[in-house]
Structures are given as structure tokens and as C-alpha cells.
Nucleic acid binder design. Structure first.
Length: 513
RNA sequence: GAGGCCGUAGCUCAGCUGGUAGAGCAACAGACUUUUAAUCUGUGGGUCCUGGGUUCGAUCCCCAGCGGCCUCACCA
């Protein structure tokens, strides 16, 4: 049953002892439970060694030291750990039962707060209950779970055994909450738009396909919510945002998960510079909050400095962020203006770009930028806004009034990652119709933005207010703020290849016993 | 998709030049009323990822496969 873990049968025997003692090993509702954090905070220098305030806590037993007529055990809940002291003289009525507890069990304890002679805050228990019997053993109580594959496949064990992993996901929730609060303060409303779309628009990426049986139509998992959020601008929602999943059918690595969380927002009557202000303010706020959470202010550092560790480096999120134009970077590294088509083609040839003659100049600019400029952004230890992109790369973007070859777009790079992407949105239905029709030479069809969406054009034809739009990759933001170099460490259940047993189960044969 | 590294007890890891495998924790039996990864005594526990090959003999060498991590490619 469950698996062939050799310790399962030992725990089965223990389970029968609980039943023989009249206890349902899988307990029920328990009221009056306080978090271990709250209980720890109840303890003051004036708290007596025992007989302090009454409290009730619950959690999983992660350490257990049975010293005969006295048992110390450590429980963990979502806020941390607490030592429980169980003395026979205080727990005489339930002594035989408390002796049945073992590592991994989930239990609640009532008692009075105090501490031991070494000063450890301890709840001296006089009553307890078994909330859930653990039938399988937990990972090593000291080393935790180190196997990255098991940490991802069985995230519950990672969370239960590795406090730093729990901290990441608790912090992730807090950061997302702060983003919502930040946007609500600015009068944005949160919406949900379709994840299943008949046209996978709004970005250039390969979509997943699925099928609706009753309608007998193929649908795509969305690669972006953009075209739906803009429809809401047409409808009169002037500030909307969505925090939700996008799906892209591409490679998996330390920066890419097939489903990833994106925050996308649109603000009517704003533009690129409005998005820049908003982005800088939001990111700097979040970084400052993390900064306060993780370490004391280093001596001698300015109180306004916001520096966070990331891998082996320190990232500086102190506003204002650097701003540099795409062309300035391009010229610096290529020695040619991005709008000088002849010069760009020459540079592409000299840098051995493939099929130069078959590609649009803007595609060449993009390739050269990625190859020669982006690596230099990787070495920068502070966020950088790169703005004013070649128009050909940004079909959904408004052009600069004084130069139609340049699009009002920025990307925010941090440590080489594209963290945010923003635009002055295109609201001209005629231009939009054109860009949906035109296929840029040198791009694969599935990677192109040219996917005609008549319904969206119709929406624009009714009038969309001018707007600024912004997208922030939430998972990458978490990596940077929480100092994780793999996206799998900030996504609770990252996509992994199925195990052989799961493959055969999916094919219809029974799962391994 | 390419390359490098890795897969040994429930967990964390050793295992030399090829001679049928070890430690700590966990488990089991016992002792212990202030422990801190408690300690002490004793015991059990293995598809060495899978399948081939070489060899008298393979956890170890070779080939293929599966899975993981990292780097690169791909990637609005």
C-alpha cells in the first residue's frame, strides 16, 4: 500500500496502537491554535521558566528527543519552529499516547509558555492531540532534502523539510500581494482574461494547442493576455491589470518554465514614460521591502541604498534606475546606427549572421543586439531601462512622433534578465491591421506577430484610448528578489519530465504498487 | 537539440586499481526528567537508475536508454 517503503509497516504498527488507544489517527478540526511565531513573541524576559501564558500550537514534529519521563520535541508550522516540552507529571493522563508520537506526525499541544535552563523558549504541554499520523518518513531531519529532483517532484517534502524553501514561497506570496496593493493604490482593477484562445496573439512565441470537444475547435493556451486587456480599454476600463499564467511551448531551463506568471497592465492616457515611472517605483519598493526583510543595514551604507544579493553578486536597486537608448548601446558595440540599413547589413555580414540577404534590417538589428549587446547587460549589477526600439521589432507599439522608425518601447534588464517590457500602445486600427497582415522577412511564422485577429481590429475601430502597457515576468522578479538562480526554485511545481512509472500509468496500466 | 557532471539503504553521503557494499541520521528493541542534529547499548534494512556488452568475476570499464543538475542553442 502507498509504496514499498520499508518503514511503512513499522508505522502501520504504530497506527494500530493509536487505534487501540481509542484515537482516530487522522484528526479533526482544532480550535484556538496560535502560530508558533505568535507564541514565540509572547515570551518576554519576564516570562517565568514555566507557568507563563497559556497557548496552543500545532505543527509537524521534525525533531524528537525522548529522555524517558521527559520528551522534547520540535514542531514546525508555516511561521517557524517551536520546542514543546512534555513532562510525565504534566501529561500523566495521556502519557502512554504521547509516547506514540514519532517524527513526521502532525499534532497540536496546549500548555503554558516558559523556557529551559539553557533559555530555549518552550511550551510545557499539558494536553495534546494527534492531527495526522505520518505513514511515511520525512527526509533527513538535519540535512533536509537535497536531491533537486525530489525537491521539485515532491515539493511538499521540500517545504516540510527545508525551511529556506518555505521562506521563498511565503515571500513570493507577500511580494505578489504588495504588487496588487501597489496597483490598487493607483486605481487599477484586476481582471481575468481567457487562457484558452482561438488565436494565440499578443506575443511572438510558440503556443500549446488543445481541443474543445463540444465545439469541435482547436484552441491555443494563451501566450499573452494583451489583446484581451486592450479590449477592456476599449470598453472603458481605464486601468486594468492581470496576474496570471502564460504558456509558451519552448525550451525548459533555469530561466524558462512552460507556464509562467506574468503581470500585465494597461493604463489609459499614459505612455512609455508613465510606464517607466511606474515600473521603477514598483520594483524599487519591492526591493526595498526585501532588503528590510533579509538583513540589517550594513554599517556606513546610505539608508536609501537598496542592495540585494544575487548569486555571487550584489544588485543595486536604488532608484533612479539607469536609462539608455537602444541605439546608443547598438552604436557603442556595433559602431553603426541601427537605422542605417546598409551599415547594419554590413555589420551583420562581418559578424557572420546567417542569411543576411533574406532578413529584414530590423531582424538583423535584433540579432546583433542579442549577440553583442545583451551579454554586456548581463554584467551590469543594477537595473537598466533600454528604450526606443527599432520599430520593425515592435508591431504593436506606437512609433515616436518625430521618427516613425523608432518604437516607444523599453525593456528593463537586471543581471541580464529581461524583467519588464513596456510600450506606448498602438491604438490605430489601420496600422494594426497592417502589422497583422505583414510578415517580417526572416521570422518563422509561429514566431511572428502577424496573426490576423479581426475581432481585435474591430475593437480598436471603436476607439481605444492612448495607453501605456507593461509586462513584468513575476517568476524572474522572484528569482532576483529572493536570490534564486533557477526559476524552478520559485515555481512551486515546475514542469518536469514524467517518470517511467508515470508514463506507463498514463498509458493505462496500473501504477506501481 | 549539443556538451559536461551525476543517479549507491527511507534521507544525507563514502566506496581506491574490477573481487557480490559502508557511515551518519531515520527505523526496530532497551536505558534515561532540561534536551538542542540529545546521548548510550543492541538489531534489521540494498533492483548499487534500466537494458545490453567486455571479463573467471562489474556499483566500478564500454554501448544504449531513462531521469536530474549545469552550460550552450532556442526564447518579445
Amino acid at each position: 500500500m502507498f509504496n514499498d517503503n520499508p518503514q511503512f509497516k513499522d508505522r502501520l504498527a504504530r497506527l494500530e496502537k493509536w487505534r487501540a488507544a481509542g484515537v482516530d489517527p487522522f484528526g479533526r478540526r482544532t480550535d484556538g491554535i496560535m502560530s508558533t511565531r505568535v507564541v514565540r513573541d509572547l515570551h518576554t524576559p519576564e516570562t517565568p521558566h514555566d507557568g507563563g501564558p497559556a497557548a496552543r500550537v500545532a505543527g509537524r514534529i521534525v525533531l524528537l528527543r525522548d529522555i524517558g519521563k521527559l520528551i522534547f520535541l520540535t514542531i514546525v508550522d508555516s511561521t517557524g519552529r517551536l520546542q514543546i516540552g512534555v513532562a510525565k507529571q504534566l501529561m500523566a493522563a495521556h502519557w502512554d499516547k504521547v509516547k506514540l508520537l514519532e517524527l513526521g506526525d502532525i499534532a497540536w499541544f496546549s500548555g503554558k509558555l516558559g523556557h529551559t535552563k539553557t533559555g530555549e523558549i518552550t511550551l510545557w504541554a499539558d494536553d495534546f492531540g494527534l492531527s495526522a499520523k505520518a505513514m511515511l518518513p520525512l527526509p533527513d531531519k538535519f540535512h533536509g532534502l537535497a536531491d533537486m529532483e525530489l525537491r521539485h517532484r515532491q515539493r511538499y517534502l521540500d517545504l516540510a523539510a527545508n525551511p529556506e524553501s518555505m521562506e521563498v514561497f511565503v515571500a513570493r506570496s507577500r511580494i505578489i500581494q504588495m504588487i496588487r496593493e501597489f496597483l490598487h493604490r493607483r486605481d487599477f482593477i484586476e481582471v481575468e482574461t481567457p487562457m484558452m484562445q482561438s488565436i494565440a496573439g499578443g506575443a511572438a512565441a510558440r503556443p500549446f494547442m488543445t481541443h474543445h470537444n463540444a465545439l469541435d475547435i482547436d484552441l491555443f493556451m494563451r501566450i499573452s493576455p494583451e489583446l484581451y486587456l486592450k479590449r477592456l480599454l476599449v470598453g472603458g476600463m481605464e486601468r486594468v491589470f492581470e496576474i496570471n499564467r502564460n504558456f509558451r511551448n519552448e525550451g525548459i531551463d533555469t530561466r524558462h518554465n512552460p507556464e509562467f506568471t506574468m503581470m500585465e497592465l494597461y493604463q489609459a492616457y499614459s505612455d512609455l514614460s508613465g510606464m517607466m515611472e511606474l515600473t521603477e517605483s514598483l520594483i524599487a519598493d519591492l526591493a526595498a521591502d526585501r532588503r528590510r526583510a533579509i538583513m540589517p543595514q550594513p554599517p556606513g551604507e546610505s539608508p536609501s541604498a537598496v542592495r540585494l544579493p544575487y548569486g555571487s553578486r550584489m544588485l543595486d536597486f536604488t532608484p533612479p534606475f539607469k536609462r539608455i537608448s537602444y541605439n546608443e548601446l547598438f552604436e557603442r558595440h556595433l559602431g553603426v546606427n541601427m537605422l542605417d540599413e546598409a551599415g547594419v547589413r554590413k555589420a551583420a555580414v562581418s559578424h557572420d549572421v546567417a542569411d543576411v540577404d533574406k532578413k529584414a534590417a530590423a531582424v538583423l538589428v535584433g540579432e546583433l543586439f542579442e549577440r553583442l549587446v545583451e551579454p554586456t547587460l548581463h554584467d551590469m549589477d543594477a537595473p537598466v531601462f533600454v528604450f526606443d526600439y527599432p520599430a520593425g521589432l515592435c508591431p504593436l507599439t506606437r512609433r515616436k512622433p518625430d521618427n516613425p522608425a523608432v518604437a516607444e518601447r523599453f525593456e528593463l534588464y537586471v543581471a541580464g534578465m529581461e524583467l519588464a517590457n513596456a510600450y506606448t500602445e498602438l491604438n490605430d486600427p489601420f496600422v494594426q491591421h497592417e502589422t497583422f497582415s505583414a510578415q517580417l522577412a526572416g521570422l518563422k511564422e509561429e514566431e511572428s506577430m502577424a496573426k490576423m485577429d479581426h475581432d481585435f481590429i474591430t475593437a480598436l475601430a471603436h476607439g481605444m484610448p492612448p495607453a501605456g502597457g507593461l509586462g513584468i515576468g513575476i517568476d524572474r522578479l522572484m528569482m532576483l528578489l529572493l536570490n534564486r538562480t533557477s526559476i524552478r526554485d520559485v515555481v512551486l511545481f515546475p514542469q518536469l519530465k514524467p517518470l517511467p512509472a508515470e508514463q506507463s500509468a498514463a498509458a493505462g496500466s496500473p501504477p506501481a504498487a
